[in-house]
Amino acid sequence: MEFNYLAVFVAAIVPLIIGFIWYNPKTFGTVWMKHAEMTEQKMQSANMLKIFGVTLILSFVLAFILPSITVHQMGAFSLVQGDLGIQPSYETFMAEYKDEFRTFKHGAFHGVIAGLFIVLPILGINALFERKSLKYTLINVGYWTVTLAIMGAIVCGWR
Rank of each mutant, 00 (worst) to 15 (best):
T39L: 06
L56D: 08
L128V: 04
P25Y: 10
N140E: 13
F9R: 02
W32N: 07
L49I: 12
Q73P: 04
T137M: 14
L84M: 12
Q41W: 07
Q87E: 12
A108Y: 00
F104H: 01
M33G: 07
E2V: 00
E100K: 15
M94W: 01
G19H: 08
R131L: 04
A127N: 13
Y90D: 04
A63C: 03
V14K: 08
P67Q: 03
K42Y: 08
A127E: 11
G107C: 01
E91Y: 02
A108C: 03
I150H: 01
L6M: 05
L128A: 08
I86D: 02
Q87W: 01
G19E: 08
A63Y: 08
I17A: 15
G142W: 08
I154N: 00
A46S: 14
V71L: 07
F64S: 03
P121I: 13
M38T: 12
A153F: 05
A46D: 10
K98L: 03
N24T: 07
F104W: 05
N24P: 09
L116M: 14
T30G: 05
Y5L: 09
F129V: 08
R102W: 00
L56W: 14
Q87L: 12
I150G: 02
W158S: 03
L49Y: 13
V10Q: 05
G75S: 10
Y5H: 02
M43V: 12
H106K: 07
G19W: 07
I13L: 15
M1K: 03
L62T: 13
M94Q: 05
W22F: 09
G107M: 01
I86L: 01
L49S: 13
L148K: 00
S78E: 12
K26S: 14
R131A: 05
D99K: 14
P121H: 13
M151Q: 03
Y136N: 13
L56Y: 13
K98N: 08
M1L: 04
A7P: 00
D83T: 14
T137G: 07
S133I: 08
I17D: 06
G85H: 11
L79S: 06
K98F: 06
V141N: 11
I113S: 07
I113D: 06
I154M: 00
H72I: 11
E130R: 06
T70W: 00
V141H: 10
K26P: 05
K34S: 04
V146D: 11
L123D: 10
T137E: 08
L120D: 06
R102Q: 12
P25R: 06
